[in-house]
């Protein structure tokens, strides 16, 4: 099994940690080695929340610049911020709906134009999948499931060693029963975003 380093990034409250954990559980159920790192502490207070999933028997839980094989980003500004972690063959899976920052709201900074910079990413990273994950989550009936939509898209790329079925089983196991159906739909909608 190949070495693989996956970076998840988003804003506190978007469910970054849950997405990486679900992937971790699915990979473990495949009987493969996996490490998932989380940074806690500031998560609920609007800061950036990063997590990683490390595969192939690697043990180091963090990712150096240029070494993320896949970036799963829940927010376009955070996608830009994480680009230095990627290399030219990295998969970039990104939501395109911005979450404003406090500094932008206070007029102290400018939010980069999402359309322009998504184009920039596509020009520089050939494996870019950028789409409105929020609308798909709404379509699935659970606005909060942006994380599960993106997890679906990640499964669609076919590079992670956990089958969509395994991932769906992890969702069923980990998510409250009343939300499972909507989350599974969110997963399918994400999966369909990536045509292989």
């Amino acid at each position: 099994m190949a070495f693989q380093r996956i970076l998840f990034t988003g804003v506190g409250g978007q469910g970054t940690l849950l997405a990486s954990r679900l992937l971790g559980e699915a990979v473990m159920e495949e009987g493969l080695p996996v490490r998932v790192s989380e940074v806690h502490g500031m998560a609920q207070r609007g800061g950036v929340v990063e997590s990683t999933v490390i595969l192939g028997g690697l043990e180091g839980p963090i990712i150096s610049n240029g070494e993320a094989d896949i970036l799963v980003s829940f927010e376009p500004l955070e996608t830009l911020r994480a680009l230095p972690k990627c290399h030219e063959d990295s998969w970039i899976i990104s939501n395109i709906i911005p979450i404003q920052t406090l500094t932008v709201r206070l007029g102290q900074a400018e939010y980069p134009d999402p359309d322009r910079w998504i184009d920039f990413i596509k020009q520089h990273f050939k494996n870019t999948v950028a789409f409105d994950a929020e609308s798909l989550a709404k379509e699935a009936g659970i606005t909060r499931a942006v994380n599960i939509v993106l997890l679906g898209a990640l499964a669609g790329c076919g590079t992670v060693p956990a089958s969509p079925e395994r991932l769906k089983r992890a969702i069923k196991k980990r998510i409250k029963p009343e939300f499972v159906e909507a989350n599974l739909k969110a997963f399918e909608l994400g999966l369909a975003q990536v045509s292989r």
Partner: peptide
């Protein structure tokens, strides 16, 4: 062997997202 990375020097200065009181 460092992985090949695209030139990102054109990226703008990105607004920070400091944690704040809820």
């Amino acid at each position: 062997q460092r992985p090949k990375t695209p030139d990102l020097s054109r990226l703008p200065k990105l607004p920070m997202r400091p944690p704040s009181l809820c």
